[in-house]
Amino acid sequence: MLVLSRRANESIIIDDKIEVKVLKIEGGTVKLGIVAPQEVKIYRKEIYEAVREDNLQATSATVEDVCGLFKKSKCKE
């Protein structure tokens, strides 16, 4: 991992087209400003991880589980 030190109002440029700027450092929080082309996707990592976790859990479902959800009589056939 590349490690760089930056102060407030300093930036880094990634691949000539993505700028990440440190806007504010306060307490334990760093506020970042990001300028990137529209096609670049930017997520908070913990949200992506949570979606991942949710998908992994979803895929353990069986037809019987779904039947339990809506209590449809069709399931008993």
Binding site: N55, A58, D65, G68, L69
Partner: peptide
């Protein structure tokens, strides 16, 4: 949208 159904409590899906 993806649905998660807990095994022991489908009502908490």
């Amino acid at each position: 949208c993806v649905v998660v159904i807990p095994k022991d409590s489908p009502e908490d899906a």
